[in-house]
Design a protein around this nucleic acid. Structure first.
Lengths: 222, 222
DNA sequence: AGGATATTCCATAGAATACTGGAATAGTGA
DNA sequence: TCACTATTCCAGTATTCTATGGAATATCCT
C-alpha cells in the first residue's frame, strides 16, 4: 500500500461514516437512539416509515458500526454504538444550525416560538434542585426516562402531565427538559404548565447533551 | 407546516450536511481546507482528481454551505465556511477511529509505525518553547504555515528541511508538527532528524486541533 | 409441532450521484 | 481586441441508493 493508497483508504472510511448519516431517516434514528434503545417497529412507527425500509436503514447504520444490537426474545433492540457517535450527531446538528439559514428559520417558527422565556442553563441546576428551590421534570416517554435521566428529576411524560400535577406546588419553579433543543415536548409542557398557573421554564438542551457534558445520570424507573 | 413536517425538514437539513461529507474526495477537500484556502486546480492535483470533477465536488460542498469562496484574479479560492465545520470534520474522524477497526489498522501501519517514540502533548509546549527548552518545527508547505501556525514555530517544509537544519543545535529538543494525526509529514521529518543525530519527537495532533483547542495562532510568513 | 410476532432478505423499479469530455464564461495581460 | 488561464456548466453513461412487497428466518408460546 503506497502513501496515496493509505490516504485514500482512510478518507474512504471517514466518508463511510458520513454517508451512513446522509439520510434524513437515519439521522432521526440516531437521534432517537441517543435517548434509549429501541426495537425495529418502534423506530418505524416513530419515524413514519415501513418496517422493511426501517430494517434496511438499520443495516446501513450497522455496517458503518454506528449502532449495535441485542436480542430480546423475538425483538432486536438497536442502540448507539458509543458516546462518540452521539457526539458526532450533535456536531452534525451544530454545523447545520450554524450554516443553514433554513434550520434557524424552522427552529424559530416551531421550537423557540412556543416559549418566549429565556431557557434555564445546566449550570447549578442540580444544586438548586437538591435544595428544593426547583423541581426538575422529565417530560419524555417513560422508556427514555428509564434509560437515563437527570438525578432527582420526576418522570412526567407529556400525555400524563396533567394527572401528575397534583404533587407540585405552584410556588416552586419547575424546569422541564426533553430530548434536546429540537424536541417539542418540553416547550409544550412549559406552555401547559403556565396555563395552569405554574412557574415553568425549559432547560436549554436535553438529555444527551447533559450526559455528554459529563454531568451525572440516573438510570431506572423513578 | 405540521409537527411531523417541521421535524422532517430539520432532519433533511441535517442529512444534507452529512451527505455533502459523504464522499472520500470531499472529506479530503475539507481536510485540506482546514489548513489553508486553496484554488480549484491545486485541490485537484493534491487529491489526484480531474479539475472538472473537483469543481463538481466543490459545488456540492458549497451548496451545503460547508465552504465559501473568494476570487483572486482568475482563480477562485475555497475555504472552510467556519470553525464549526472544522470541528465537524474532526468529529467525523474521531468516530471513524473509534468505530472502524480498519482505520486503526491503517494508522498503525502507516502513521504511528514511522515513529516509535511517545508524541509530545500540547500541554505546556509554548512555555517550553519560549524558555528555549525546545524548538517547534512546522513541516507543512509554506502556504499552510502562512495561513496559521503555532507562535514561535519555524517553517521547515519537508522538502527543504535539510537545508534549514544548520540553524538548529543538536542539543535542544525538536518538536515537529503537521496537519494532524493522519498526516505523514511530521513522522517523516522526525525520522529524518533522528538520522541526522537530532533529538526529535512529533506533536500529538496538528494545526486545526491546536486552533480549535483555543490555543494562540500566528498568521503570516515567518 | 404449529401458530403468531418481529425482523431480515431478496428482486425490482425508479431516483439520485459520480465521472468524463467538450463547450461556455470570467478575468488577465499583451 | 485577442490569446491565455482558471473555473464552471452541460449532456451522456455507469453506478449506487431508496422504497416496496413478498418470501424467508428466528424466537416465543401453547
Amino acid at each position: 500500500m503506497t502513501g496515496r493508497e493509505a490516504k485514500d483508504a482512510l478518507y474512504e472510511h471517514f466518508a463511510r461514516i458520513a454517508k451512513a448519516a446522509g439520510h434524513a431517516t437515519r439521522v432521526e434514528i440516531l437521534d432517537l437512539l441517543g435517548q434509549a434503545e429501541r426495537g425495529v417497529d418502534e423506530l418505524a412507527s416513530l419515524t413514519a416509515t415501513r418496517v422493511t425500509t426501517m430494517s434496511a436503514h438499520l443495516q446501513v447504520l450497522r455496517q458503518a458500526r454506528l449502532v449495535e444490537t441485542r436480542r430480546e426474545g423475538t425483538r432486536v433492540l438497536y442502540r448507539l454504538a458509543d458516546d462518540e457517535v452521539a457526539r458526532f450527531v450533535l456536531s452534525l446538528r451544530d454545523v447545520a444550525r450554524a450554516r443553514l439559514a433554513e434550520v434557524q428559520q424552522v427552529v424559530r417558527d416551531y421550537f423557540e416560538g412556543a416559549d418566549d422565556l429565556e431557557p434555564v442553563s445546566r449550570e447549578g441546576l442540580l444544586e438548586r434542585a437538591e435544595s428544593g428551590d426547583v423541581v426538575i421534570l422529565d417530560v419524555r416517554p417513560e422508556e427514555e426516562f428509564a434509560a437515563g435521566h437527570i438525578p432527582g428529576a420526576l418522570s412526567a411524560p407529556l400525555g400524563e402531565l396533567e394527572t401528575r400535577l397534583r404533587r407540585l406546588r405552584k410556588r416552586t419553579e419547575i424546569v422541564a427538559y426533553c430530548r434536546g433543543p429540537y424536541c417539542v415536548l418540553a416547550p409544550q409542557a412549559v406552555a401547559l404548565l403556565r396555563r395552569k398557573g405554574f412557574k415553568a421554564r425549559r432547560l436549554e438542551d436535553g438529555m444527551p447533551e447533559w450526559r455528554l457534558a459529563g454531568l451525572p445520570v440516573a438510570v431506572g424507573e423513578e
